[in-house]
């Protein structure tokens, strides 16, 4: 069961991928099916259940795209 809930404000993501390497669970990837308002593939969770709610992704994101809550 997921310990954390992560929300991406997809429209302001710049697809820089820093959150991807910051995530200890390696469960973030760029969403290849989507292109956001800026023309980037936004980041999203590929396996929500494995999220431990550590917040590393949000800490690492330069653009405050990510909000994390612990369930």
């Amino acid at each position: 069961m997921a310990k954390g809930k992560v929300k991406f404000n997809e429209d302001i993501c710049k697809g820089c991928e820093l959150c991807i390497i910051a995530c200890p669970q390696k469960i973030i990837a760029l969403d290849e099916e989507k292109i956001n308002a800026k023309g980037f593939h936004p980041a999203h969770l590929v396996n929500e259940d494995a999220c431990i709610g550590c917040g590393n992704c949000a800490i690492m994101c330069p653009d405050s795209v990510i909000e994390v809550e612990r369930i």
């Binding site: 954390g4 949000a58 405050s64 990510i66 809550e69 369930i71």
Partner: peptide, 12 residues
């Protein structure tokens, strides 16, 4: 539901 991280109000 505790907030672990959200955008700071110190930013516009």
């Amino acid at each position: 539901m505790t907030v672990v991280y959200k955008k700071s109000e110190g930013l516009t």
